[in-house]
Amino acid sequence: MSGQISGEWPLYEVFVRGKRGLNHVHVGSLHAPDDQLALRHARDVYTRRNEGVSIWVVRSSAITASSPDEKDPLFAPSGDKVYRHPTFYDIPADVPHM
């Protein structure tokens, strides 16, 4: 990890893959002094009951997130495009497998 850390340990976000074949899913966060200990802590905090087969940890400061204030303008472009959904199209009920 680059740079000296003073004071509080940095925050990490924890992602757990529940089982093979599934995506890693965000389960929570924790503080740790470095990446390796973040992984150990994540195991202890979030997978004590076999919740996962793989863990990712990433420094919270490394995540770029959309802002809640932007929610409307950010997602508005898909709001009026109902034709992207299969239900927009009328297919007679007697046409199978569609």
Binding site: R84, H85, P86, F88, Y89, D90, V95, M98
Partner: peptide, 11 residues
Amino acid sequence: EESFHQRQGYE
């Protein structure tokens, strides 16, 4: 997402 593709074609 593919279901929309097929249905728009058939329609």
